[in-house]
Simulated assay, not measured.
Amino acid sequence: MKIAFTQPALMRWMLAAAVALGCHTTLHAADAPVLRVGDQRQGTRGILEASGLLKDLPYRIEWSDFPAAQPLGEALNAGVIDTGALGDAPLIFALAAGARARAVSVSKLQSDGLAIVAGANSTVTDVASLKGRRVATTRGSIGHFLVIVALQKAGLKVSDINLLFLNPSDAKAALAAGAVDAWSTWDPYVAIEELHDHAKVVVNAVGLRDSYTYQAATDDAIRNKRAILADFLQRVADGQRWALAHPQQVAAAQARITGLPQEVLTYVYARAKLHPVPIDAAVMRAQQHTADVYESAGVIPRHLDVRPSFDTSFTLK
């Protein structure tokens, strides 16, 4: 099996990101240093704006927004962005594809925002009842990982279902139209399905994975933009701590940016409890487990030792 990311595919994702965000946000004078940051549905930016931590930056941020982590990983791989937040599974997928990037900080969150959902009137009741059904997810995503481990726990294999790889917008449309029977996805998509479309949660990731999200950076950014990268990482950590006590303010800021319903985003932030943690042995074990699951399922073509993919030199307060 060979993983290949084509330039046309990457350009399509980057074009969509540019259109969605107006190409980029300039926060300081044009001659200031620039940090190119990839985001997913404005999650990081929403926290930083709400907490006031984007004020008085000594550099400019160019934001690129992505609907999922897999295209963000492609952008890191291509050097189109300097840093971006993505989950453990898509980071493994990007590293297996040859991305010259490393995890430079880690945050932990609750696992119930990652789930396999089905329509409110679906006859799917549990993971076992997915046998022979059509399940959508995004290739290389945390949703993909959940499908694999949930099936394993139920005594099934991926070959026992019809797994379809779709981006989130197409997967949502397919579920609504009955073209797929279930969708393995993450917040805010899970929350939208629960609160607005009254979908049922077939299974969530509680007990199936330790949920971490990583701020990854390219080797070039680590080497050549170290000072501003370190400042940004500290602001993200400070913003996450602030957001723990202010989920409604963060949701309001992100709703203004994305147009997503504020009540959905409040629900997402309140249950995620996202907070920074050190890169330690537990984090590395969890990441190695993800890599091993992907290897055994044939998602990545070779064994991956995750230890060199961490950079522990950025000390956060």
Results as ranks from 00 to 15, higher is better:
K273L: 10
S169C: 03
R209Q: 12
I228T: 02
D187Q: 14
A118K: 04
E193Q: 06
H198R: 13
L48P: 10
V124M: 03
V180R: 01
S211C: 15
A115F: 06
M11C: 05
I257T: 00
A227C: 04
L21H: 15
P308K: 10
W183P: 03
A205R: 01
F93G: 00
Q262N: 07
A182G: 08
D31Y: 07
V201Y: 05
H246Y: 02
L265V: 04
A85T: 07
L175N: 04
I47H: 04
P308D: 11
I81N: 03
D220V: 11
V124E: 01
I47P: 02
V37T: 15
V180F: 12
A173Y: 08
I61L: 08
A103G: 08
Q215K: 09
I81Y: 00
L304A: 09
A136R: 00
P8Q: 01
W13K: 02
G178P: 04
A50Y: 00
M284R: 00
T6H: 01
L208E: 09
F5L: 10
D126K: 05
Q248N: 09
R41S: 08
Q40Y: 03
V180G: 02
L244D: 13
Y294H: 12
W186L: 09
G87W: 05
K108G: 09
R241K: 08
T315G: 05
A217G: 07
L163F: 01
P261A: 13
Q288M: 07
A182F: 07
A32D: 13
I61F: 07
E194N: 06
P188Y: 10
L86I: 05
R36Y: 01
R139H: 11
L156T: 08
G84I: 01
F165Y: 06
A16V: 01
A20F: 07
V124W: 03
L21N: 15
E49V: 12
T123Q: 14
G43K: 00
Q40A: 10
C23L: 12
H196I: 09
T83D: 02
I47E: 09
A115D: 12
A221Y: 04
A101G: 11
S111W: 10
G46R: 00
L130F: 14
Q7S: 13
L130S: 13
R226T: 08
G132A: 01
P71H: 05
E49G: 01
V268W: 14
Q152W: 11
A32T: 06
A103R: 03
G143W: 04
